[in-house]
Computed example of a mutant assay.
Amino acid sequence: MTEAEIRALASAAAREAVKEVLAFMRVDPSDIDSVTGFSDDMRYVRRQREAAEKISFKAMLAFFSAAATGAAAILWLGLQDFFTR
């Protein structure tokens, strides 16, 4: 087998694999609207994932801030009680 034949065979196999993957995801590669819709859906999912990551970071920050504030308040009240006795 020559290198050109191997490249042609690999290219055909890659095209077929892409068609199978797209068919598995219910995307018709010959229909531009289907491909565009799939691409839009992937962009939307990415934006949702990024938004969820930002929200979870902010929620974790709020939780630890509340815990630190609570610990500081307990310490402050304990010190006040200690020094007023």
Rank of each mutant, 00 (worst) to 15 (best):
1 M>D: 09
2 T>P: 07
3 E>W: 04
5 E>K: 11
6 I>L: 15
6 I>P: 00
8 A>L: 07
9 L>V: 05
9 L>W: 05
10 A>L: 15
11 S>W: 02
11 S>H: 08
12 A>C: 02
13 A>C: 02
13 A>H: 07
13 A>S: 11
15 R>T: 06
16 E>Y: 05
17 A>D: 09
18 V>W: 01
21 V>P: 00
21 V>A: 14
23 A>D: 08
23 A>F: 04
23 A>C: 01
28 D>Q: 09
29 P>M: 06
30 S>E: 15
30 S>V: 07
30 S>I: 02
31 D>Q: 04
35 V>W: 02
39 S>R: 12
39 S>Y: 10
41 D>C: 04
42 M>Q: 12
44 Y>A: 15
46 R>I: 08
46 R>G: 01
47 R>S: 13
48 Q>T: 09
49 R>H: 10
49 R>N: 08
49 R>E: 10
51 A>T: 08
52 A>M: 10
52 A>K: 09
53 E>G: 01
54 K>Y: 02
55 I>S: 09
56 S>A: 11
57 F>Q: 11
58 K>D: 07
62 A>W: 04
65 S>T: 13
65 S>V: 03
65 S>Y: 04
68 A>H: 07
69 T>H: 05
72 A>P: 00
73 A>G: 00
74 I>D: 06
78 G>K: 03
79 L>N: 05
80 Q>G: 00
81 D>F: 11
83 F>S: 05
85 R>C: 01
